[in-house]
Design a protein around this nucleic acid. Structure first.
Lengths: 225, 225
DNA sequence: ACAAAAGTGTTGCTACTACACCCATGA
DNA sequence: TCATGGGTGTAGTAGCAACACTTTTGT
C-alpha cells in the first residue's frame, strides 16, 4: 500500500467575459464518478513525451474544441480523497480567452460543454469548485500587474469594454474618468481611428493593446483601481 | 509506452538570510543519478495518505532535519527528461526560515547538507537550478505584498535587519530614511523597549511583527522600494 | 576623541481621489 | 428632440523620492 501508484492529471479553468460577466468553461461528465455533474476540462497526462502545459492544451482541445489560447499553470492539487477512484494529483491551469469565434464541441468523455457564469455555478465534480475559486483569485491579482485583461478582449476594443473586464473580475464598479486617465497614461493603449457603433448613440473609439509599450513599463506596473 | 507510470515528487527551496546574503539549503547526493552533485531536498510522495504539503515537510525534515517552517507551493515542473530514470513530475515548494537554532543533519540519501549563497551555487542536479531561480523570483514578489520578510527574521529584529532582508532579496540598496518611514507608517512593526547591542556603537531598537496589524491593511498592501 | 552604526526632517513633485456635466449619434 | 452611452477637467490631498547630518555607544 505504501507505493500505490499515483495518477497525474491536468485540469483547466478557462475564463472569458460575456456581457460583462465572468464565465468559466465546463464539461458535463458522461461517466462515473460524478456522472452528469459539470467539471473542468482535463484528464490524464498519458502521452509520455508531453509537458504539463502541452497536456493541458491537448485536453482542453479534445474536450471542448478550444485551442490556441493563453495558458498558465495555477496550482497543483493533490489531497487524498479528491478522486474516489484513487490517488490523483492534478496540475490546474488557467486559460484566459475570448468566446468570440469559438465552436464548442464536447469530446468523447463529455455529454456537453458550456460556459457558466462564475457567480451561478452548478454543483461541480471533484474539488473543481475550489480550483475555480483559486483561479478567480489569481486573475484578480493578474489584472493588477499584467496585461491579462487584454487576453479576455478582442483585438480591438473600447475603453468601456476594458473597464467592464476590470469590473467583472474585481467585482466592483470603478470611476470611469479615473480609469480612462490612468490607463491612457500608461501608454499601453493604441488609439485607432476606427470606432465601434453599438446602437443609437455616440460611437466609441477603438483601441489595441501594445505589448511593446507594456514592456517598457517598470517591472511591476500597477493597474489598480 | 503510452502509459508508462509517472512518479510524483516534491522538492523544497528553503531560503534564509545569513549575514545579509540570501542562502538556499542543499543536500549532496549519495546515489546516482547526479551522484555527488548538490540538489534540493525532496523525494517521492510515497506515504499514500499525505498531502503534497505534508510530503514536502516530511522530506525536508528527513533529509536535512529542518522542521516546523513556513512552506508554500511554488510551481510544478513536469517536463520530460528532467529525471534520466523516467518521467517525474515534481511539485516544488518554497520555505522561508531563519538559520538560527537549526541543527542540520543529512538524511540517509544524502552525503551532506549545507547552506549555499544563491549567488554562488555549485553545479546542481536535475533542473534544480531552474527551480531555485523561480523561487527567487517568487520571493521578490512576495516581499512586496506580504509579510514574507518576517519569516526570514527572528522574533525580535532591528530595522536594519529588516532592511537587509529587502536588500538581499531585491538585490539593491534602499534609502534607509524612506524605508523606515514607510515601514513604521504601515503599523505592522511593534516597537519593543529592548535594544540590541552589536558592538561599540549605538544600540538599535528591537521590533516585532504584528500579524494583527498586518491583517488590518488593505488587500494588497505595497511594500515596494 | 574617535569609530561605527543608529536614527531623524523637509521639500518638491507626482499621482491618486472625488466628483458632474456636455457630446455625438440614430431613431 | 430625446434617449443612450461616450467622453472630458479640476482641485485638493496623500504619499513618494531625493537628500546629509546629528546621536549614541564602547573603546
Amino acid at each position: 500500500m505504501a507505493s500505490e501508484t499515483i495518477k497525474v492529471t491536468v485540469d483547466t479553468v478557462a475564463l472569458a467575459i460575456e456581457q460583462g460577466a465572468l464565465e468559466v468553461l465546463l464539461v458535463k461528465r458522461k461517466y462515473e464518478p460524478y456522472k452528469s455533474l459539470w467539471a473542468l476540462p482535463g484528464g490524464s497526462l498519458d502521452e509520455i513525451d508531453e509537458t504539463l502545459d502541452q497536456a493541458a492544451a491537448r485536453e482542453l482541445l479534445e474536450e471542448t474544441n478550444v485551442g490556441g489560447v493563453y495558458l498558465e499553470q495555477l496550482y497543483t492539487f493533490g489531497d487524498k480523497g479528491r478522486d474516489p477512484r484513487g490517488r490523483t494529483v492534478t496540475a490546474a491551469y488557467l486559460a484566459l480567452l475570448r468566446q468570440e469565434g469559438l465552436e464548442l464541441k464536447a469530446g468523447s468523455k463529455a455529454r456537453g460543454v458550456a460556459w457558466w457564469k462564475v457567480n451561478e455555478l452548478p454543483e461541480l465534480a471533484f474539488d473543481h469548485a475550489d480550483i475555480i475559486s483559486y483561479a478567480r483569485q489569481r486573475v484578480k491579482y493578474k489584472l493588477e500587474y499584467s496585461p491579462a485583461a487584454f487576453m479576455l478582449l478582442p483585438e480591438k476594443f473600447t475603453l468601456r469594454d476594458l473597464q467592464s473586464v476590470y469590473e467583472a473580475v474585481l467585482g466592483k464598479a470603478v470611476d470611469n474618468r479615473n480609469f480612462r486617465k490612468k490607463f491612457l497614461n500608461t501608454g499601453v493603449l493604441q488609439e485607432l481611428s476606427e470606432t465601434s457603433q453599438e446602437g443609437s448613440f455616440r460611437p466609441a473609439r477603438l483601441y489595441t493593446f501594445s505589448l511593446e509599450e507594456f514592456e517598457k513599463l517598470p517591472d511591476r506596473p500597477v493597474f489598480m483601481f
